[in-house]
Design a binder for these strands. Structure first.
Lengths: 219, 219
DNA sequence: GTCTATATATCGATAGAC
DNA sequence: GTCTATCGATATATAGAC
C-alpha cells in the first residue's frame, strides 16, 4: 500500500502521535534516500543514462521497491527536478535577504550570479540534476516543469530590470537575451568544471567579473 | 554487403567510371540522407530520446536498412558528432581567414564568438547535435570524441592567448575559465533560442558586447 | 515496506529473401 | 541496397509472498 501524503502525513487527531510519526518517518527516510541517490546519479549520467535499478542499488533497495515510494519513473524525475529549482531559488533568495534592504541592485545581481553558480557547482546534486535533466527530458515532463522554472526566472527578470532602471547596467542590450546567456553559461559549467582546477568561488568571481566588467582591459 | 569506403569509393583503374560512380553515388546519397536526418533528430531530442527507427523513418528507410550504411548506432552517433565539430571549426576558420592577416587579435576573437554562435543557432544541425550529444553520450563515445574537441579547443586557446599577449583583453582572469564560460553560454543557447524573438545575428551581437564590454554602463 | 518473480514493451542488432 | 522477421538484452512496471 502507498502511504498517505500531504500535510507531512501526520494525522492531526491521532492519539499515538509517536507511533504514526515513527511509521511515517521510516518511509520518509527511505524516500529521501531514494531521492538523494537519484539526484546524484541523474546529475552525473543524465536522464537516459540512468535506470531505476541504478537508483535502487545506490539507495540499497531492489528495483520493484521503488514503486512503493513513487508511482512511476516520471514522478521520481519530476520530484528531483522540482527540488532542484527550489534549492537554487532558496540559496539565491537567502543570500539576497542577507544583503539587507539597502543593497544596490547591481550588488544584488552580482550576489545572485555567484550564489546560483556556487549552488550548481558544489552545493546541490538536485540543482545539477535539474539543469541536466531539463535539456534531456521528454516534452511532457518539460512542460510539467515549466511553471517552476518560470517562477525562478521571474526573480532574474526582476534583478535585471531593477539594475537597468537604476542605471547600474547598460540599457542597450536585450535583458532577456542577457538573462538566458548568463543562465546558460552557468548551466553548462558543471559539465566541464573540475574542482582540482581551483575553487568554485574563484570561478564564480571570474564569471561575474567577465559578465559585469567585460574582457576588455580596465580603463 | 558493405560498400568500400575511402578515396570516395572510386576505383581509379575502372573502365566504366560512370557505372561505378553511379553505384557509389546512390549509396553515398542515402548515407548522407541518414546522417542529415540523424543530426536533425539528435539535435532536437538528444541521445536517448532518439531511436534508430526514428532516424530510419525520417530518412525513408526501415530500421534494419541502416546497418548497411553504419555498423552500429554508436558509429552513426560518432560520425554525426565528428561532422558537428568540423562544421563549426570550418565556419569559424573561414571567417577568420576572411578577416585577413592584419586583423587585430580582439577582432579575431570577436569574429570567432559570433561565427560559433551563428553556426550553432542557424547553420548546422550537426553542430547542435554535437553539443547536445556531447553532454549525454556514454563515456566510451565521449573519449572517442575528445580528440576532435581538443583540436577545436586549441583554436580558442590561441585566440584568447594572443589577445591577452597583445594587451587587448584583461590578463587577470583565468583564460581557460573564460574560454569554457563563453563556449558554455553558446552551447546552451540552442536550448532556449527562438527565431521569433529576433535574428540570431542580434543575439550574437548581444553576446559579444556583454562578453567584451560587460554589462556595466559604458564609461 | 521490501522482496522475488514476471508481464510487457522496446530497442539494437542480425539473418536471409528479394 | 532495402526489405521482413526475429533474436536477445534490458527497461519500466505489476503481482503477490513475506
Amino acid at each position: 500500500m502507498r502511504p498517505r501524503r500531504g500535510v507531512a502525513g501526520v494525522s492531526e487527531t491521532s492519539q499515538q502521535p509517536d507511533a504514526s510519526q515513527r511509521a511515517s518517518a521510516k518511509s520518509d527516510l527511505t524516500r529521501q534516500r531514494v531521492l538523494d541517490a537519484a539526484a546524484q546519479i541523474f546529475a552525473r549520467r543524465g536522464f537516459s543514462g540512468t535506470t531505476l535499478s541504478d537508483i535502487a542499488k545506490a539507495a540499497g533497495l531492489k528495483t520493484g521497491s521503488l514503486y512503493y515510494h513513487f508511482a512511476s519513473r516520471e514522478d521520481l524525475v519530476a520530484e528531483v527536478m522540482a527540488r532542484g529549482v527550489r534549492q537554487v531559488a532558496e540559496s539565491v533568495e537567502a543570500a539576497l535577504a542577507a544583503l539587507g534592504p539597502e543593497a544596490r541592485p547591481i550588488e544584488r545581481l552580482r550576489t545572485a550570479v555567484e550564489q546560483h553558480l556556487l549552488c550548481l557547482l558544489e552545493r546541490s546534486d538536485y540543482a545539477r540534476a535539474n539543469t541536466k535533466l531539463s535539456s534531456e527530458v521528454p516534452p511532457h515532463l518539460r512542460s510539467l516543469h515549466a511553471a517552476n522554472e518560470e517562477i525562478y526566472g521571474a526573480l532574474w527578470k526582476d534583478l535585471l530590470a531593477q539594475a537597468a532602471a537604476a542605471g547600474e547596467i547598460r540599457s542597450d542590450l536585450s535583458l532577456s537575451a542577457v538573462r538566458m546567456l548568463m543562465l546558460g553559461a552557468m548551466a553548462w559549467a558543471p559539465e566541464w568544471y573540475r574542482p582540482e582546477a581551483g575553487p568554485a568561488r574563484d570561478l564564480a568571481r571570474t564569471f561575474s567579473e567577465m559578465t559585469f566588467a567585460g574582457l576588455l582591459p580596465l580603463r
